[in-house]
Design a protein around this nucleic acid. Structure first.
Length: 352
DNA sequence: CAGCCGTGGTC
DNA sequence: TGACCAAGGCT
């Protein structure tokens, strides 16, 4: 491949066709960092409103470093992968304390920050600082697997190294930012997973797969395993105008997010069984349980089948990591998808 | 390394 | 409707 010509074709196309995205209107390494974390495994259209609100709420690195975790998680609510938010804040605090508030500009230092892996390190270094470092994500592996006809399985972790070496070899030293973003933009707009638009591709003369007619066979990617399924009862326990909420554990699924008390159950658990198990756990009396909804929630690696109940209680004292809240206070707690679905069911009954 | 970690869109 | 996908990182 003619390296120089490839760089020119890619960068020229990017200059002409790039989308006008909010994080492309700033040169602030902190704001670019935010965008890269939000974009991990998440679509551009989904990220845009979150990014705008987030930058408005936490305009500077110090604003985020000093933020309350509940406020931060509330801003992240609905985006998913909530450990990203907590790792991001941990990384930002490190920069505030150990780097004088300046995002470090070496791969070694920036990679030591919580939540910053090989991709994000290269993205921030190249986009914010113009340093010719590789930033290999799913787009880049798909695009280069076709251009360079690489037939390694991109689902395997060790394959990423092959692409990092390839990018290091061909990256533009004049404009590494446009080069890296150009590869990703090409993957998003032209060199898509299915039916790539080769006739519109600015670098198709450099593409080995196109010449061989193999663009639809690449990349090679083994399939994911199917997810496990779990059955739960989620119970809105009411005492006058308040509901009992509990905060999930500090690690694992939906860490530190809030939920209505949750009980792993057999399929079609009866209201009486729910009352009994909850009274036992909460050391009080839970009664008048009534099923009000039933839904499925699919996570990346498992599925929750949830029966939603409403129940009464009079003498329950909030235990560790629990709190009685009004409908108004409930709106301030960060909650994930399953609890949102429960809140919707409660709203339809006029309970909140 | 494999498994864990969310959500919403698409075909 | 199920399977796959989208600018990954942590353990």
């Amino acid at each position: 491949m003619e390296k120089k010509q490839f760089q020119n074709d890619l960068i020229s196309w990017f200059a002409a066709e790039k989308r006008d995205l909010p994080w492309r209107r700033t040169a602030d390494p902190y704001q670019i960092w935010i965008s890269e974390i939000m974009l991990q495994q998440t679509r551009v259209d989904t990220v845009i409103p979150y990014y705008k609100r987030f930058i408005e709420k936490f305009p500077t690195l110090n604003d985020l470093a000093q933020a309350d975790e509940q406020i931060l998680l509330k801003q992240w609510e609905g985006l998913g992968y909530y450990s990203r938010a907590r790792n991001l804040q941990a990384g930002v605090k490190e920069v505030a304390e150990n780097y004088g508030g300046i995002v470090p500009n070496s791969r070694k230092e920036i990679s030591s920050l919580k939540g910053v892996g090989p991709y994000t390190a290269g993205a921030v270094l190249s986009i914010a600082y113009g340093i010719p470092e590789h930033a290999v994500d799913g787009n880049v592996m798909r695009v280069l697997s076709r251009i360079l006809l690489i037939e390694e399985d991109i689902a395997k972790p060790k394959t990423r190294k092959i692409f990092e070496e390839a990018v290091t070899e061909i990256i533009s030293h004049e404009d590494p930012s446009s080069f890296n973003q150009g590869l990703m933009e090409l993957g998003a707009l032209i060199c898509t997973p299915t039916s790539p638009k080769c006739l519109l591709c600015p670098v198709r003369e450099h593409c080995a797969a196109f010449h061989e007619g193999k663009q639809n066979e690449l990349p090679i990617k083994t399939k994911a395993k199917k997810t496990k399924s779990l059955q739960y009862a989620m119970v809105a326990i009411r005492n006058e105008d308040k509901f009992l909420m509990e905060q999930r554990p500090e690690s694992g699924l939906l860490a530190n997010m809030w939920q209505f008390p949750l009980l792993e159950t057999a399929i079609d658990a009866l209201p009486l069984e729910i009352e009994e198990q909850l009274s036992e756990r909460l050391k009080g009396v839970v009664d008048k349980a009534e099923k009000i909804t039933s839904f499925k929630h699919v996570f990346s690696h498992l599925t929750w089948n949830v029966d939603g109940f409403i129940a009464d209680s009079k003498n329950i004292v909030a235990l560790d990591r629990m709190r009685w809240v009004t409908a108004e206070e409930l709106e301030l707690l960060p909650v994930a998808g399953p609890v949102q679905k429960m809140k919707t069911a409660l709203q339809q009954r006029g309970e909140v």
